[in-house]
Amino acid sequence: MSTVTIKPRNRYKIHPQKFALWSAMASIIMMFAALTSAFIVRKAAGNWLEFELPSIFYVSTFVILLSSIIMHGSYLAYKRGKAAIYRWGLVLTFLLGITFVVMQYSGWTSLYEIGVELNGNPSGSFFYIISGLHAAHVLGGIAVLFVAISHAFGLSFKISDKRLLRFELSLHYWHFVDFLWIYLLIFLLIQ
């Protein structure tokens, strides 16, 4: 992304691109806020199918949480100049990310098997749309991780402001989709 080079000035407490990413997160949050409040309103109206979440969703939650922790480790390793941990940490994060999406998918199929259909009672439709939209955002994160890995292995190891910034942007987004899922899961459970 080409950015007009403005010399870093201390007056700015936060980098513009980081700020832009956070603004984007705010708008993603609004998307989910819309869905979850529609969920509440619709549920209050009755005729609502209750079902138990297949346990694989708890495993997938653990997986994405783990991936976040590992990515953070990789980030710390990068800052301390430990190239190997940095590189393989990213790979692990990437693999766990993919595992998460696969698990979500198998969770959907087992839901389907117990009779919760996409086009059945809105209760099921809401579950699919919320978790599906979240998975789409995870896929975006996986694409970002892919780029990060190709940088990690393709470029010679070097600690620079620019690469640190890139790493932080990817890291924040990944943590974001992680916490977003945890929030959504808790929401779906207590609702």
């Binding site: 603004s23 609004m30 869905l35 086009n119 809105p122 809401f126």
Partner: peptide, 25 residues
């Protein structure tokens, strides 16, 4: 705009699912 347009997108997503996938939002 940043806080309100995404809500419309969610609405459109549900609308599209009603149109294409047979959901009943």
């Amino acid at each position: 705009g940043l806080l309100s347009f995404p809500v419309l997108v969610s609405g459109f997503l549900m609308l599209t699912m009603d149109r294409a996938l047979g959901t009943s939002f």
